[in-house]
Design a protein around this nucleic acid. Sequence first.
DNA 1: AGACCCAGGTTTTTT
DNA 2: ACCTGGGTCT
Length: 678
Amino acid sequence: MPSAHHLAGLNPQQREAATHLHGPLLILAGAGTGKTSVITRRAAHLLAHGVPPEAILMVTFTNKAAREMRERIAALIGAEPARQLTVATFHGFGSRLLRGGGAARLGYSPRFGLATPSYQAGLVKTLMGEAGAVGEGFDPERFLAAISRAKNALLTPDAMRDQARAPLELKIAAVYAEYQKRLRQMDLMDFDDLLVLILRLWENCPDLLQAHRARYRYLMVDEYQDTNPVQFQIVATLAGTAANLAVVGDDDQSIYGWRGADITNILSFTTHFPAAKVIRLEQNYRSTGAILQAANAVIARNPKRHGKTLWSAQPAGEKITILRVPDDTAEGRIVAEILRDRQAAARRPWTDFAILYRSNHQSRGFEEALRQRQIPYTLVGGRSFFERKEILDGLAMIQAALNPRDDLALLRILNVPPRGIGDKTLETLRQLQQLATGAPLQELLATPEFLAELNPATADQIRRFTATLAHCRGELRQPGNLARAINALFRDLGYLDGLGRLYKPREDALNRHENLMEFITAAAQFEREAGPAATADAFLERFALMDGNDREEKDGQERGVTLMTIHAAKGLEFPEVIVAGLEHNLFPHEMAVKEGNLEEERRLFYVAITRAKERLTLVHCEKRAIRGAPQRRRPSPFLDELPETLVELHTPETVLKPLSREDAKALVLARLRALREE
DNA sequence: AGACCCAGGTTTTTT
DNA sequence: ACCTGGGTCT
């Protein structure tokens, strides 16, 4: 049996990791050391040694990583057995267990809805209003962040209240308690619940824990350095004493501390699991020698590490370019020109290039500069599509139709498009709800008592509104009808026609209509992919759990240069990388400087550097417009951490080298060809 | 109830 | 420079 073709091409350390069968294993995998390859092959190896595929659970951080993992396993062992493995994100796994019977045991229905971030914020804002937490210093986003942090640290509302040391914390705890109560009343969970409730489930129902342990006997966790306390608890609980648990990660790439990730999970793995075997993967297959040495030098300044030194068999390659430009306008322009030159000179596809930055708002300048020069690009992340008003409205319509108990979704769309519901009507409705001790609003809307309060025209509108929702509920639940049912819902609620009235420049309205159509197209595509499993609930869930990268699958179209944050770039690689805005208080970020989180910022810089395979350019501005006003900027201290021998300092004048005669000719020819094709 | 206007605040990273 | 939200006017 061990023909071991699934181990072909591995180096000794990789091989050792891939052939580890039982007990805890920590794989410390530096950037570009082939960790995905190792874990997919380990899965194949387990199967080859008689482990049944359904006993294997692989947890990743993003859907994209999960998809990639599944594809690579399928390539290794065949599509059919690959289907039987569970490859999911933590949240996806949580959702699977909860829908598969767990939710009912916790007092939720199995078709519970998922609260999106904007929905959460809306709810928190409402509750803050009710709790009298309004005005100075009361920011819903802050409250929500604090609540989320508490949940991920496994802190209950009561515990939070008991350990509160300031009036503000007490308020937060109170809102937190009410928030949980209301979500539950509306049969909704938020992202964090998908994790927290798994633990609650196992605590309350030992039989289920036993069943899950019996099924998922081999666990693998990717990006282990980014697990938070709940996730650790989930992993540790499920692994139990058998502890067939293999985790892969790189403490040097831990960049999610701000959202509760606990780097000590990976630093203390051998304390938690004393029997653990530790394997280091240090041979990098991605970057040139210069890039790798620079990365090593930077990360060596962090004191708290497992300690690894990456090496590469590749030649040193080009030096790293540090480019100083006068201001942020010039930054966009020069970067675009560099890209154009490099693309022509190296004759590479645009997809070989990436522009990385610390904060999302930095993308703007680059987008403009690239558009002007007609350089194709793809902007990754920036939850923009998801946060568009029309998309949120559309989502709320579907939610309200599917879930009659979802008051918040209902309130969002009750008067969208306008149907004559004002403050007074809402007040009546609210009072009615008090009397009816929290009956769902959708139910109350249809009661004669309520309708009698309205003028006849409005009452009529409301009747049509509730009737449409009820009718569409049936349509949405019909299998194989998803895209059509959504379209009908938007139409029958008058939303599609209402856009023209709602948004005044016609162009704006058309644009939003476009977005809604794109949304419906996504539903149609989901149906094609998921087949009979394509229910409306599943679509909502998929939409909510998708991350920024997932929505960028423009098939067919050229994707061009990639623009994204460094956080979003983790796990990716590009032949040529430009990192922009390397300035003090931007990268490292001002907040991080204030809070003394320089180590995590440095790890982020390390991640940025190690995305590059061949060429790396680091840009900083002398001046930059901050909130409109130009400000003098100092270069990032991180730039000083790069060994001098590895870098080359440039200005706009020196960085653009004149093209060689041959390259110039190729460039002209390419442009002629492009013209002809138009 | 809806349209329009101005002031103020705002910027980290995301499953 | 941008957007949100509050306030005022029709």
